[in-house]
Design a protein around this nucleic acid. Sequence first.
DNA 1: ATGAAAGCGCTAACAT
DNA 2: ATGTTAGCGCTTTCAT
Lengths: 346, 346
Amino acid sequence: MNDRITLQQIGEMAGVSSATVSRVLNNHPHVSGEVRGRVQEVMDRTGYRPNPAARTLAGQKSNILSLVIPETAQILFTDPYFAHLAQGMAQACQVHDYALSLFIFHAAEDEAKIAQTLLSRQIFDGAILTATQIGDPLVSQLADNGVPFVLVGQHEDARVSFVDADNVAGAYTAVSHLIHLGYERIGAIIGPQSNLAALHRYEGYTKALRDWGRPLDERLVAQGEFLETGGYAAMRRLLAQRPQAIFAASDAMAIGALRAVQDAGLAVPDDVALIGYDDLPHARMVKPQLTTVRQPIRAAGIRAVETLMDILRSGLHPARRIVLPTELVVRDTCGARRLMGGGISN
Amino acid sequence: MNDRITLQQIGEMAGVSSATVSRVLNNHPHVSGEVRGRVQEVMDRTGYRPNPAARTLAGQKSNILSLVIPETAQILFTDPYFAHLAQGMAQACQVHDYALSLFIFHAAEDEAKIAQTLLSRQIFDGAILTATQIGDPLVSQLADNGVPFVLVGQHEDARVSFVDADNVAGAYTAVSHLIHLGYERIGAIIGPQSNLAALHRYEGYTKALRDWGRPLDERLVAQGEFLETGGYAAMRRLLAQRPQAIFAASDAMAIGALRAVQDAGLAVPDDVALIGYDDLPHARMVKPQLTTVRQPIRAAGIRAVETLMDILRSGLHPARRIVLPTELVVRDTCGARRLMGGGISN
DNA sequence: ATGAAAGCGCTAACAT
DNA sequence: ATGTTAGCGCTTTCAT
């Protein structure tokens, strides 16, 4: 970039050494008010901007933190997950005087190269990873390389700190809700089980059935991609089994399922009740409005940054694992309002 | 970060100077195959990773490019604009061996500080700005500071290069379409006119009316926020004027308008035809499906990066201004299919 | 309270 | 083809 003027020059102009200028730049004590003012004045007048690369090299610290995400169309397009996460992170970074860097990698790339590229190209003190797959090699590669990082999502490796929403509990609550509403044949549309969140949501589903003494009927479970089309196809298959209610592992899938039900000439929630997951903006825009599970993604971003800051500050201390609570958002597709003589608007 | 081993050390281990190691690292010619192999072997074996800050400082080039966006809930949440843009940029960066950095700033901050923070914290060779407001001081500040950057969107400053979608033409085409369909009283729901895109879309609307000899009736024009609620409120006001068709400056607004029409007991497109703008995923999920204008956002991201690369390579040459064509996506809300005896699915 | 000086890890002339 | 040598612009001891 176009940095011209240096610390040296500021020093010369102010009649002090560069060390002193560095001190005022970094708000060190032991600088007389008189000198501090003079130096500050020169910096302001000249529009001096320190060279961040030089600071990083000399100080061994960049004050930059990297958000690492795979370029999966799903995450980036389908839902505002990433946007919320980035916002939370940006907010927390602000507080800690950190800048945020983005590293989007193409999952198609040679997996061994990704960590390499990240480490030799990007400048950062620590990273936050998200949307990783189960057993993603990137995670262990970074851990092996001693890179400080936090995962948003979960990982079995005991070395890794993570922040995650409680997917098991979220699904559990949703399915319990359906059970309490009196539905008997409760099915599920589940996501790819290579995804840990998908796995956990399925776990919540089976756990709720078990706890409330309902049988798990595999014929009422259909798997699909985390997309509307996946939900549509899964629902078409399930319809033959005459389910009374469906728990879908994402709102996108739930909306697809909704459409499939309606296309079959049936009504939601009267013929089939439905609960989704994510609380996308979308969820309240379909008719009937989607009952769903809301995750604190923004908060997850904040907590991830806080955790990373602690790691950077205090070194390797035992990994921290944060699991954030979710919230059931009751709208129209689960039938609760109808049953309660509803009409209450959200 | 945790970089331990240095170029020097690699050199010692391979029995060559650090300069030679640097040459093989950067694929310079004039290194014998024998030495190159030996050095490469040591780098691989030790898992050597160059220190990017040192490279940046010494080479005066970071190979990092910064995407600068205001933290406006609108952009980040409402639509996938940012995600598409980032994807396009990431793809182009990949090609040019650049990494991508994100700088989210809070519009609430002291405006004078933003450029300062960006320049002293982030490491980058050039920047891409988007979602700037008309007369945004950040733009001129960067230009004044000699920072190489490209705007996605437009700007009057002759120094700035930009890539934009042709908002005037997009709106013009949409409104012309409504005119050709035979509608007479064609209204518009327009966005905040501090936003250049909103301004251009309004311009396209008035231009189409003028070109086809229709009067501009101000009572048929309502302004609102670029959100569903803004569209809803605007449509409620317009309904009193009995418009036959409405051009809405965004899909979010169009969907709000759709809802307002339906809530008034009227039908789209039979009572009021509707065209939106953006082609959000949403547009095809409402019923009836939204006719809208699609913008090549991903392509804009790519072109912006290409332009920035040219600026970095060849210096200041006259600013480049790229205006990308848009595309009318005809679905159900404009009534074209109905008029043509439709039923064709998109 | 301030200055001098030694790096931080790399690149890029300039030699040879 | 390879080595030597200055820096790049800053931070940080260590003196004073």
